[in-house]
Simulated scan of single mutants.
Amino acid sequence: MGPIEAFTTAWRKSFTYGGKATRAEYGWFNLINFIAIFGGYVLICAAAIFSVDIEELQILFNLLLIYVIASAFPNQSIVVRRLRDIGKKWTWILLALSLSLVSSG
């Protein structure tokens, strides 16, 4: 499975928690998603450095925020399907979530 196919498959299966996700699908989706979000932040920072109007910065930031919130749905779905693929129960997500909350707090 190639990167574009994996990314589009993850978005199409955003609310499909049944089935399995391959390692390639999981890895490519996370890589492309990271690049998209990081690229958005770089674009906002570059626009701020070159003193773009504040309304334009707000528009860019709002678009990035919408993308980040929207990408949470396919991300959650692909994690559940990947855990099922490796033989774990979906409750392992709670462990990962609690560890991330403890490490960030």
Rank of each mutant, 00 (worst) to 15 (best):
F29K: 00
L31T: 04
I32N: 00
I32R: 00
N33A: 04
N33Q: 03
F34N: 02
I35Q: 04
I35E: 05
A36Q: 09
A36N: 08
A36E: 11
A36V: 12
A36H: 06
I37Y: 01
F38C: 06
G39E: 03
G39F: 01
G40V: 02
Y41D: 10
Y41L: 13
V42I: 13
V42Q: 06
V42H: 06
V42K: 06
V42C: 09
L43I: 15
L43Y: 13
I44T: 08
I44E: 04
I44H: 06
C45I: 15
A46E: 14
A47E: 11
A48Q: 14
I49Q: 09
I49S: 11
I49Y: 11
F50D: 07
S51V: 10
V52W: 06
D53N: 07
I54G: 08
E55H: 11
E55R: 11
E56R: 07
E56C: 13
E56W: 10
L57G: 02
L57M: 04
Q58A: 14
Q58T: 10
Q58P: 11
I59F: 13
I59L: 13
I59H: 10
L60M: 04
L60K: 00
F61S: 07
L63F: 09
L64W: 04
L64Y: 03
L64R: 01
L64T: 01
L64S: 05
L65G: 12
L65W: 12
I66F: 15
I66L: 15
I66T: 14
I69M: 12
S71K: 01
S71N: 07
S71T: 07
A72Q: 05
A72R: 05
A72I: 11
A72H: 05
A72K: 05
F73A: 02
F73R: 00
